[in-house]
Amino acid sequence: MSTRTEPVWMRRLLIGAALTFLMLFLFLPLSAVFLNGLGKGIAVYFQALTEPNALAAIRLTVVTALIAVPLNLLFGIAASWAIAKFDFWGKDLLITLIDLPLSVSPVISGLIYILLFGAQGPFAPWLMEHGIKIIFAPPAIILATIFVTFPIVARELIPVMKAQGNDEEEAAMTLGASGFQTFWRVTLPNIKWGLLYGVILSNARAMGEFGAVSVVSGHIRGQTNTLPLHIEILYNEYNFTAAFAAASLLAMLAIVTLVLKSIIEFKYRAELRAAVKTENHK
């Protein structure tokens, strides 16, 4: 017997216990979503997904993600460039502040925008005067979504960029490349998997966010309902089949995300390894 592992019976026992737990807590819920959604047949399932309120919810969810994810992508690139490539005073504080949204309850994430833009907020008179509606309207939904997905891309990119160092960028500069050329031709190709990873995770979170969006949405059917909010309403009306049908869409998104994530992780590890290898070539 190897000194580095346990006896066979022990290994089997541990694997068995781990799988049982995962089965009960992860696999069972995932399959329940689909089985419940399809419980009354395929026709009912599709009908639930194509009724106008469901379509409106899907549309708002997609639009929200389409705005929030690219903005956070740009921010993530800027933040990781500054943090990974340069040294400056207050860097640790900046990193802590960027991570902040991850440790704030979703409900509080929504609440702060109500305090800022709501009827009792500092901008209320101005907004009223100009007829701009932020709270209980799509702008607040988008803002809250940006807040909760804010750090994701930056958190993925910072370690990759750090690991890759500044050598290649500096080489490009000495060869006459401008800042933009250096970024576009040298940096971007080296971080593409990390970038994609961050985008996919942000997208999943943006489309699925519930708590923060729930606070600021106002729950107006067909107007300010995202897909998760639509599911809540259906469920609370005891329309379980329709609720699970809508939920199955998001569950599919989750599965696609997990599959892509596994694929990218594979490529991404190679990217990181390559970086580490060239760094520690000595």
Partner: peptide
């Protein structure tokens, strides 16, 4: 400039 670890563009 020739860098210590060459800094060739790996992609």
């Amino acid at each position: 400039f020739v860098f210590q670890h060459y800094a060739l563009f790996r992609h």
